[in-house]
Design a protein around this nucleic acid. Structure first.
Ligand SMILES: [Mn+2]
Ligand SMILES: [Mn+2]
Ligand SMILES: [Zn+2]
Ligand SMILES: [Zn+2]
Lengths: 143, 143
DNA sequence: ATCATATTTCAACTCAGTTGCAAGATTAGA
DNA sequence: TCTAATCTTGCAACTGAGTTGAAATATGAT
């Protein structure tokens, strides 16, 4: 996933210094094939270096506010994070009720979804979060 | 909202005793015009009687597991709850990024949404949570 | 009345984050 | 180069939302 994103440049564009922790957070998310929790990111970071959790939470908040990352609220208490660069546009997520695994689904245009929903006239949609809960391919076979 | 639901009967159908706290939780949600947080429900309850928060959390969990209520995870840390009886089918929610107000939108059939999303073949969708974030009617006028 | 079961309460705890401030690192100016 | 301003990270203590286990209370059945 990260093969198309230049992280030092991404940070520079946002006026942020390319510190080891910031770069490592981006690299970890770039290599992941799914959205990760703050705790999982922290764990990965600590294999390499000593990091305080507050630093990670602050970096995740900052990146999210700047649109570098997307924060995803699933059923689980902890939020999940994923890269939000142009190669990873917003998309729905599928979570299996049986094995709890999370899959990223193909993007659907905001305009099409907003039209489908027919939200109140006068309201403007800036973002649509879609979370599908169900039973995945594998879990259905096992039954 | 509650005018069409018989709460004592609803509890009886679920093999639950019509206790004052259970009935009050349902009445409060029945009168509300939006999904409420556990804390808001507790506050309303305490106007009438002395209740422990654990009781409320356990009732909300139990009702949710039985499908009497729906738990809605918005951006806020606390979950929101709304009645899930046949007169209140699942529907998308709109949350204004400016005033944080939550609106219930019109229901959209699961099948239509699932088709729109084109989820992975073999996966089965049981539930689709749609959360729209944007700027509401009122807040847009003020600008 | 006696007992079993269902419901509510209490105190203590967990988990995921947040806050304020100190310490360290980086950059810019004199 | 020395200094000061700014940015980044760390530490300790705290918060809010919810959870746990066990005791107390209420309800229903015999
Ligand atoms: Mn994703
Ligand atoms: Mn609603
Ligand atoms: Zn599964
Ligand atoms: Zn608004």
């Amino acid at each position: 996933m990260s093969d198309r994103c230049n992280f030092p440049q991404l940070l520079a564009l946002n006026g942020l210094r390319p510190t080891p922790v910031r770069l490592a957070v981006l690299e970890i998310l770039g290599l992941a094939d799914r959205a990760l929790r703050a705790g999982e990111i922290l764990e990965s970071l600590r294999i390499r270096r000593r990091v305080n959790k507050v630093t990670v939470y602050r970096i995740l908040d900052d990146f999210t506010a700047r649109g570098i990352l997307r924060r995803i609220n699933l059923d689980d208490r902890a939020a999940h994070y994923e890269l939000a660069c142009e190669h990873h546009p917003p998309h729905p997520h599928f979570q299996c009720l049986s094995c709890r695994e999370v899959q990223c689904l193909d993007p659907v245009p905001l305009s099409r979804m907003w039209a489908e929903i027919q939200g109140p006239l006068g309201n403007r949609a800036d973002r649509i979060d879609i979370r599908v809960a169900g039973h995945c391919h594998k879990c259905r076979e096992q039954e």
